[in-house]
Amino acid sequence: MPDGEYPEFYSFPPFFTIQPVEATKEKQLSLWNELIIQYYTIQKLNKILIVHECPLWYNKKIQRKLSKESIDIIMDNLIKSGRGEWIDTESKTTCRILWRKPEELATDIYEWAISSGNIAGGICTIYELHSGEDVHGMSFHGIDEDLLRRALKILEDDGKCTIFKGETSSEDGIKFY
């Protein structure tokens, strides 16, 4: 994320100290969530946060760095709020950022399916859903395949789509109703 795009609070020094007063801390942690999600969505990469590599913890401009304990608190809060989940639950080094929760993604996908006419009985592939030309700008564009499958599972459970096995996993087909 270019310098100018960092929110104002990122250069507020107390932002890097976990606040001892509960009400203030709550607000602070929610700002951290916001920042992490924003950063990893703009990155549009795989939305995977590797704890010891995350550049957000250190703001060189104001010379402030989060302590190890602070990072733990922020990560715990992120997971608790449902915006992240550990890929390795044991060692807790890698976290998937859920900038949309699976339920929200499911809704997004279904809305896209309606508006793009896929509802009329056409079948699209998993690959098309996360990397296809039709989904540019959609919330699930570039999304992690696991997550996409979780969202589709929700839709399937609701009876809004069916998933067909393809030759490879990314060729699995989806039919919306």
Partner: peptide, 9 residues
């Protein structure tokens, strides 16, 4: 809630 702190590590 009027102030908050910054600990310079």
């Amino acid at each position: 809630g009027w102030l908050c702190r910054d600990i310079n590590t």
